[in-house]
């Protein structure tokens, strides 16, 4: 008996979004990164194509983190008080993009001024020629002052700025449009809300094709199934032709994985759980590997081992 052909033809495709700008494009980046463009379910090469493999951004904070566990300190401890040096380290470790978090602008984390934040961005742009993803401190009132300055400082570099929400989108959308950056649209685990945020942003005149979606992230063991199902539903909607869900997706895997007890608790748990230097990175890698199946285009990671595993996994799955 012949095996029936179960290939699925999808009417929609995921948008492509290019981050970064080379000299020719008005920026100073050594290269750009393009994500999205899929025409089928992730890694089912017989269904559709994946023209751009999922990209990896490495985390860089603008101040030394106090709560990063030992395995991460070993990699970044010597550079993490200097964002430029940290960014160079991330490039050496093979990052496609730098994920810069301006945590020190938080009123309780140093309350640095918009001008200082802009200086940090300039320093990182000078230190490495990778495209940038830039986040504020997640305090809307402060981000509304910081992000326009940051967008201005990075003018022409075609960065990816985060994140617009249902309540706070106008300032960031206006800034991104004025200085020609891409935007992250955040709607936690809710496809309807995601579409609504996208419409609100597009009502400001910002093109839907310049958006990257952030449906939030959950790590292995902490509600990942739920996020996974939302990811998958969103991707299926995109493939079915829903233009409001056709944007590529960014996931903050490193941050979530390294918050988990399993990635943090020291070697006192080694007897049952294995040594921390393997465990933390493994937790991050497994979270990333799982979520990739739901449909993710840009992963923010932290540990070099996780980067290696995820890269080879993507390579193998795309080759299969």
């Amino acid at each position: 008996m012949a095996i029936p052909d179960v290939k699925q033809k999808w009417s929609g495709r995921v948008n492509t979004v290019t981050i970064g700008a080379t000299k020719a494009e008005g920026g100073t980046r050594g290269r750009t990164v393009t994500i999205g463009g899929e025409t089928g379910i992730p890694f089912l090469s017989f269904d559709g194509e994946t023209p751009h493999p999922p990209a990896i951004a490495l985390d860089v904070l603008d101040k030394a983190p106090l709560d990063w566990p030992e395995p991460l300190r070993e990699i970044y401890g010597d550079v993490w008080s200097d964002p430029a040096a940290w960014a160079r380290r991330a490039k050496e470790l093979g990052a496609d993009l730098i994920n810069l978090r301006l945590v020190s602008t938080h009123p309780e984390e140093g309350d640095r001024s918009p001008e200082e934040a802009a200086d940090t961005v300039r320093a990182v742009l000078e230190a490495v020629d990778l495209p940038l993803v830039i986040w504020g401190c997640d305090v809307p009132a402060k981000d509304q002052r910081v992000m326009p300055k940051v967008a201005e400082a990075a003018q022409g570099e075609n960065c990816l700025l985060g994140a617009c929400t249902e309540t706070e989108y106008r300032t960031l959308a206006a800034a991104a449009q004025a200085y020609r950056h891409k935007l992250i649209a955040l709607a936690p685990c809710d496809i309807n809300k995601q579409k609504q945020v996208n419409i609100l942003i597009s009502d400001t005149g910002f093109p839907l094709t310049d958006l990257v979606l952030y449906p939030t992230t959950a790590s292995l063991g902490y509600g990942m199934e739920y996020v996974y199902s939302i990811l998958e539903r969103g991707r299926l909607a995109a493939l079915a032709g829903d233009r409001l869900m056709a944007q590529p997706v960014i996931l903050d895997v490193g941050y979530e994985a390294w918050r988990s007890k399993e990635a943090r608790i020291g070697d006192e748990a080694a007897a049952a759980w294995g040594p921390l230097h393997v465990r933390g990175a493994a937790w991050e890698a497994v979270t990333a590997a799982d979520l990739l199946q739901g449909g993710a285009d840009l992963l923010i990671l932290r540990h070099i081992k996780a980067v290696e595993v995820v890269r080879s996994l993507i390579r193998d799955l795309l080759a299969a």
Binding site: Q144, P148, R170, T171, A174, A175, Q177, A178, Y179, G205
Partner: peptide, 10 residues
């Protein structure tokens, strides 16, 4: 207009 809006918003 976008630029002026960005600063107006801020």
């Amino acid at each position: 207009a976008a630029k002026s809006m960005a600063s107006d918003h801020a």
